[in-house]
Design a protein around this nucleic acid. Structure first.
Lengths: 193, 193, 193, 193
DNA sequence: GATGAATGAGGTTTCATTCAT
DNA sequence: TATGAATGAAACCTCATTCAT
């Protein structure tokens, strides 16, 4: 697995740093190589092309993001608790990794349509976590059974994403973690019977 | 006012068409000029540079978008109705102008940080419409007085934006207008006392 | 005679001012037109093209330069006096018209080879004044009859031109007029029997 | 030292050829690259930009020019001999490198003020050679002690430069080398006691 | 004569990618 | 594996000139 080779991760971490610092368009392959401490050509031993660095970056980081989120959610007993954990994990993980937040909320969105479609592919796993919680809530009887799952999914993800983006853009003048309870209440009220 | 000169609008409309068709980065100035039926150099009589076309495009189109939305909202009597009108106008206007939806939801977001900050400036006017409806609802007694306005704003805009983006990405396989009622119910439930 | 029309001179004077201020390459036709207080298109009623402004400028200004020089020289009785007058007129006229000095010594030399050949055409009249003085000096018996006229012409013109250019480049930190006597002595010594 | 890399000199020599042939403004970077047998982009591995090619060209060529001149002058015993060697070297070196003469006498002077200031910087070394010879002549007692060094410098450089420029413009219809003796006599007469 | 909006050709430079070592 | 010098395609913008009014 390429993912186990140390240089692979080394280059991805370098990419996060460089993109967060310089922005997507100013992030030249040579800069990423320099930050990773390898030669330009070495990049191409681990990645097909520049876009592949970004896709891999998102897969790698989002994979960890999702995994940790799932682990925490599995510890909870009911949909409402799980929803709170989802929100908490979403906010805290991006809050803790400043550079990653900039990259996922701002810089990666400057990529072209093709790359964004791939990113959406990765996101699906995350969206299905949301779906499962909602379905569980309906089954438990705590959420409204008439909910349109797709719509609810957009509402939840849209709310979280917009909140984080705004927080990143406002240069983190307030604590994201402080928003968890209020956001949770707002969402739960929309979902409940 | 440059906005009254016919060529100004002509070029902006050409830009919407070309960007929707080719994507932001493949949209060469020469292509936009050709589509507008003017010479390349003429572009620079009306716009400072390529980026200025995008800023102006967004200001012009978003200006109309907001104006029409405000007009319709003003006809309604209470916050709940106004919210429904907001959602309806948001969905219908983007639904009706296919190319514009692609440009605002996908292509314009590929621009750099500076441009996005300008776009946010324009968006503020729209977000303040949302704020006013929420405040009105609270004053009327129909919305929960303890609502955190900023958070609610993110929820509403995030939900609408995410829904439209998903609709654009799914290549409009379903009717956006059909979602109005459900989205409205979902949001209102979150806001109500 | 186009030269008698007021706008012709108006545009030439504007060109001198604009070129002296902005340099040759930054002197756009539109800037010259603005400075002259006419429309861009009007320039082309009086001049064939941009280069023609420069050629005309040089002809007009150099024509006056040469005429005045000749008038003063004609008042003198012998070659040595005439030479002193030539040097004096060369230095004083350029010293008195700051902008013109910048244009002739620095900016006009940035033009292309073709324009410089035309400029040389105009210069010939000036060089022939030099030649005549030298020939007169030889006939009078005060200058060495074995002098190579062309060479002497280069020496005299080269000396004057280099001195003025250096004075312009040094931003006129010293008085050009103060150099007349010394330059005269130096040249006369080279020419005398 | 970049100057030791073969491609650096290769590109400079290509620039001399291309500029002499096409003139400064018609000398596109792509033409220089083609003449040097490298890709367009390679130019930018060795030079900051197009102007830097010209500055480097002048430094490189003028450096050699000055060095050779100094070497020959050092072999001579007195100021008069040294002056003759200076004139001889000045004429012969430019006479021998046709293209270089065109570039230094005509094309390089079309550059902008900034570039010309850099060129003047390089020229100072040459002018100080002249100064030293004159001072030596005065010390020896062969030159007039009352000479104004700066003026004499302008006379000598102006005479040589004007002579070469005229020779280049006249398309070398006569031998420059044949002028050495006469120019020398003329100058020496002006300098001597 | 005078205007000034419109034209459109043309070139420098960047940077992802390759490949000989 | 790793290197990094070399490649070469691709596009924004300027500005002299025109011509309908």
């Amino acid at each position: 697995m390429k993912n186990n080779k140390p240089k692979f991760k080394q280059i991805i971490d370098a990419a996060v740093t460089v993109i967060a610092e310089n922005g997507y368009h100013a992030s030249k392959v040579s800069k990423i190589a320099a930050q990773a401490g390898v030669a330009d050509g070495t990049i191409y031993l681990y990645f097909k092309n520049k876009e592949d660095i970004l896709v891999s970056l998102f897969q790698e980081k989002m994979g960890q993001f999702i995994e940790k989120t799932e682990q925490q959610i599995d510890l909870k007993q009911n949909a409402e608790e799980k929803m709170k954990t989802l929100i908490h994990m979403h906010f805290s993980q991006l809050s803790d990794d400043h550079d990653l937040a900039i990259v996922t909320q701002l810089e990666l969105r400057q990529s072209n349509k093709e790359l964004r479609l791939m990113i959406n592919e990765v996101l699906k796993r995350y969206l299905s976590i949301i779906d499962r919680i909602v379905e569980e809530g309906i089954a438990e009887g705590s959420f409204d059974p008439k909910l349109n799952i797709r719509l609810v999914r957009h509402m939840i993800f849209g709310t979280l994403d917009e909140t984080v983006t705004n927080w990143v853009m406002k240069e983190q003048k307030y604590k994201l973690a402080d928003q968890v309870n209020e956001v949770h209440k707002l969402i739960i009220k929309g979902l409940s019977r």
